[in-house]
């Protein structure tokens, strides 16, 4: 068996996941892309079990199981969060979620009062 085949598969899948996370506007699609990345990780873990002389056999597969559960838990909470956002805004476009506070509404004349002094 050539381990490089599943490894490269995993690498490409991870890359696709990254691309998806960055490309998609819809939060659910973003989550799907994340799933791709997580699965790539799992594939690496499972493949690793075949390539390494591990101190503990099947650690990779165990880890992969844990990751699947972890992902399920996260997706559960994540979807709840996304739905909460949808309830409040009727949209799940991540582009509408700002990182910074809204642009300052104060006029320049007021600024020395609060900010500079």
């Amino acid at each position: 068996m050539r381990p490089v085949i599943p490894y490269v598969t995993a690498a490409l899948l991870f890359g696709l996941g990254v691309y998806g996370v960055l490309r998609r506007r819809n939060a659910v699609l973003v989550l799907m892309a994340v799933e791709l990345m997580l699965n790539a990780v799992n594939l690496v873990l499972v493949t690793a079990d075949t390539t390494v002389k591990a101190a503990l056999p099947h650690s990779g597969q165990v880890f992969a199981l844990f990751v699947i559960v972890l992902a399920a838990a996260e997706i559960g909470v994540g979807l709840a969060i996304v739905l909460q956002l949808y309830r409040l805004r009727a949209s799940v476009t991540v582009d509408d979620v700002p990182l910074a506070e809204p642009a300052p509404a104060v006029t320049p004349a007021e600024r020395p009062e609060g900010a500079v002094r």
Partner: peptide
């Protein structure tokens, strides 16, 4: 940082 969420993810990746 006056941008939307994806930029944060982009930053990480």
């Amino acid at each position: 940082h006056r941008a939307a969420l994806p930029r944060a993810a982009a930053g990480v990746l």
